[in-house]
Computed example of a mutant assay.
Amino acid sequence: MKTILNIIENYTKDKHEKTFLKHSTSHVSWSVKSIFNNLWKNEENGNVPYELITHILDSYYHVPHRPDLAFNFCWQAINNSYNELIIHDSSKKRLLDSVGIKLLISKISANYDAKYKLLLEPYFEKVPKKLYNYVASFLLKGYAIESAGFDDKFNNSAYGTFCNNNSDLAKLIKDTYGESYKKLTGPTLEGTKVSMNIDESNKHKAHDITRSLASKLELLMKSEVVTFSDSTKTTNKKYSFSTEERIRFAILSILYASRCNNFHGNVAARLNSIYADSNTYKSYKYMYLLGHMVLAVSMNINGYLEDSDLHTLSVNTEFLNFA
C-alpha cells in the first residue's frame, strides 16, 4: 500500500510503469491480427460497423502493455454486438446483458461444429490455471457467504450468474466442494466486505480445496467426464460439459465475470494490484485474445465479417503459449 500511495502522491507514468507495470513491459513482443473486412473499404457499402470499430481501435491501442484495459474495450464491442442480436429478435423487448449473452452463446453453439470449433477450440484448451482458480475461488467463497445468510450485495455477482446458468453443476459443487470449504470458514462483515476468517491451521486445506475444484473445471473444459464426491462419499456423481456449457463457461464465467468486477470497480485494477505478477498479465492476455475471437465470431454472426475474414484470425492462436 505504501508503494501505491507513493506513486499516486506525485504521479509520473515512468514511476508507474517501473513499479506496477513491469510485468507488462517485459511482454511487448506480440500484437494481434486485426479484425477487418475488405468490403468496408467500399464507400458505397453501408454495412460498416462504425461503433464496433471505434471500440476495437481503443483495444488495439492498449496492446500489448495493458491487456486488461484492452479487454475492457474489446468487451464494449462484444456488448454492442450482442445488443444487435437482441434488436433483431422481435421476441425480446429490452437490451439486457443476460439476454444478449444467452443469444450469442446459443448462436455460437448452433454452428459450433460446422463453423466455429476450429477457431474457438484452441482457446478452450489453453485457459490459464490462474483463471480456473479465480472461478473456483468465487464459487467457494460465494457459497460460504450465501450459506452465512448475507445479502446478495455482499457476494460476487459472478457467483449468482454461474448458479443461475449452471444450476445442476452449481448444486454438485455446493454439495461437495462447497460444503467442505464452508466448514473451514466463519464469515463476518468487516466494513463493506465479508471476511472468510479461515484459521491459519486451515488455510492450506482451503487452498487445496480451491485448487482441486479448479482442476475439475479444467477437465470439464477439456471435454472430460469428472466425478464430484463429498467428504462422506454420499454424493458421488459424474458430470460432463455439453458444447454449449463449454461456450457458456468461457464467455460467462471467465470473460463476463471479469468484466463485471472490473467495470463496477469491485476489485483492484488487476495490473495495479499489490498481488499482480507475470501470471496476472498472462491471464489478461488470454482474456483479451479469447474476447477478440469471440468478438470476431459475433461479427460474423451479424454479417459484418465474411467466413474468410474470420479464418485469417486463426493466426492469433500462436500467442496462446503462456509458458
Rank of each mutant, 00 (worst) to 15 (best):
Y288T: 15
S253A: 14
T243G: 01
K282D: 13
S195H: 09
V194I: 15
N279M: 06
M299A: 04
E245D: 14
N272V: 07
N266D: 08
M221H: 01
L189S: 08
S298V: 04
N279P: 05
T185A: 11
T235P: 00
E218R: 07
G265A: 09
I198K: 06
R246S: 11
D208G: 12
T243R: 06
K222L: 06
G265W: 03
I251K: 07
T188E: 10
K237F: 00
S253T: 12
K174A: 12
E200H: 15
Y239C: 09
H207C: 10
S283C: 15
Y281P: 14
N272L: 15
L220C: 08
T185F: 03
N272K: 12
S212F: 01
I301D: 03
T280E: 10
C260G: 03
T280F: 09
I254D: 00
L172F: 03
M287C: 13
N261H: 07
T234S: 15
L189V: 08
K282M: 11
D208K: 14
A170S: 15
F263N: 13
N261I: 05
K238D: 05
S278G: 03
H264K: 11
S180A: 15
I254R: 02
K203Y: 00
K205M: 02
I173N: 11
I274P: 07
N266M: 11
T185G: 06
Y275A: 13
K282C: 09
S298F: 02
S258F: 07
R270V: 15
A257H: 07
R211I: 05
S195G: 03
A269I: 12
G186Q: 06
I247F: 02
S180R: 14
R248H: 09
S242L: 09
T234R: 11
N272C: 13
S195R: 14
S273L: 01
E245V: 11
D175L: 14
L217H: 03
V226L: 04
D175I: 02
S215F: 02
K182F: 10
L213D: 03
A170T: 05
